[in-house]
Design a binder for these strands. Structure first.
Lengths: 293, 293
DNA sequence: GTGAAAGCGCTAACAC
DNA sequence: GTGTTAGCGCTTTCAC
């Protein structure tokens, strides 16, 4: 009998196997709607790594575009019991998806730390040493004309942006720079708002722009270029999140790199290890890399 | 009994339902490895639309990164019978994945036309009016200094690039422009090769660059900028494939738009209609839109 | 060790 | 219409 199976290279039916074993060999990758309006290499890189890692565990990745509303694709996927666990690509305050997963006691991993309000609730909370990396990089960027430096950021309800702000603040503190006179602009959602902020800061004498992510950084570069200002001659731009675009930019832009692929791979691996009952690290912390260009 | 079900808002288990019905309510979205090295809005947009459309049919989307090798994620997914059908995001000559699907008689849809060698083999072959759109746009671009125009493209084994080349050739033909003196450069894989080609063409007196896709177009712009040349003053650049980056570029770049979301949605819808035994269009052809900027 | 039987949670084909 | 039953293709248990 066993010989027969071997010879005819029999492959079990996943649905039947799953029904009997009460598991699906699928995981849901939740992609916030906002990610799809942008062109973030982060998502692409981490998704690739997650798919590759899941494959090693015989798992498939189901993409769920989270709307945050009722009849969310993720909710239906969970209701139909089509996945064993979930990976969140973003963490934020007051996130209904996170709360749903906690309520239903569904194993889940996050790319990036959870906010304190959900402390310890994820199966795996993978992150980079965000604060540390941003602090170290900020110290370097602040070593020149520190009172001409501004920090530009987007939505602070995302934990990653909070960590980066903290890193910047700690850098100023460690350099004994006054915190109150710091130029910090957050909530910069659109190219127009970024443009306005940049023009405003220039009038205040700011000429060194530290951007909290690659998306903002590119917009800042575009805005400055259109104003006839050149990096790094007239103004200096740097980013607290590297991306291929910044690396290949002419001239290149300094940044601190948090490898999205490594983050995705780690989160996926530890989550699936935990599902298999094997030993795993619930809070892996990955290193950063500073690129001075 | 039925009342009981209604009251307790019972949701059937997809694995058991699938086992009994001999279907999985999953589809595989095949992403070529090359897509993930790039930053193509095409993939993001079409993936989003496919996920949304699949959701309407109660289907989930499984991402399969195709390596083209043995033990490909897609092959294992098919072996385990975890999907009912497949969507290919790229079509190419001599594609092992396409051949595999034909061999195994698995229902599949393609984004973009199949090469002639696989004529009629897909369940659904969705495409834009690529040749027509590129011809119309090329005619406009060729209306000025036609002998100073070059066409820059990537891999011609992709059907989409063949269609675009055909469109360009037909435009020249219709304008009674000589074909033999046309500057066409294909196989431009890397930024370095693109840079070399651009510099080479400039020496030949070319100053109007028509790019076969947005990726090349951006690289061409980068190369020209670094050489101190400005679009549209010194040189003119346009693209046979639009993208948000070209639209938001300063100054903007003219392009012909083939909406990836509409393509993905249509391919997914017709494929799932066919699976349900409903009437469907096996070869939908979508319109293009020319943006002169 | 090898084989038979029950059960996973559904659908479909019967019977009543 | 409502209720019962067999079967989807596995795993697990228990008997041999």
């Amino acid at each position: 009998m066993l010989d027969y199976i071997e010879i005819h290279n029999y492959i079990p039916n996943a649905a039947a196997k799953g029904l009997a074993e009460r598991r699906t060999f699928n995981l849901a990758l939740v992609i916030p709607h906002s990610f799809l309006c942008l062109d973030l290499p982060f998502l692409r890189e981490s998704m690739r790594a997650i798919c590759q890692e899941a494959f090693l565990f015989d798992y498939n990745v189901m993409v769920c575009l989270s709307t945050g509303k009722k009849s969310d694709p993720l909710i239906r996927t969970l209701d139909h019991r089509k996945v064993d666990c979930v990976i969140l690509t973003r963490t934020a305050e007051h996130d209904p998806i996170t709360e749903l997963l906690i309520d239903r006691e569904i194993p889940f991993a996050t790319l990036g730390s959870l906010p304190n309000s959900y402390f310890g609730k994820a199966t795996v909370e993978a992150d980079h040493l965000q604060t540390e990396g941003c602090c170290a990089f900020s110290r370097i960027f602040l070593s020149e004309s520190p009172d001409r430096v501004a920090l530009l950021g987007n939505d602070l309800s995302y934990v990653v942006n909070q960590s980066r702000l903290t890193g910047f603040t700690e850098a100023r503190k460690s350099l004994s720079l006054p915190l109150d006179r710091t130029s910090v602009r957050v909530g910069l959602d659109t190219p127009e708002i970024i443009r306005t902020a940049v023009s405003d800061l220039l009038q205040q004498g700011i000429h060194r722009f530290l951007c909290m992510d690659d998306e903002i950084c590119i917009q800042v570069l575009v805005a400055l270029t259109s104003m006839g200002l050149t990096h790094p001659k007239d103004v200096q731009v740097a980013s607290l999140c590297d991306s291929p675009i910044l690396k290949n930019h002419v001239p290149p832009v300094s940044a601190v790199e948090f490898d999205p692929a490594e983050l995705g791979r780690t989160a996926c691996r530890e989550l699936l290890l935990s599902l298999q009952g094997e030993s795993f690290d619930p809070t892996p912390r990955l290193d950063y890399q500073i690129h001075l260009r």
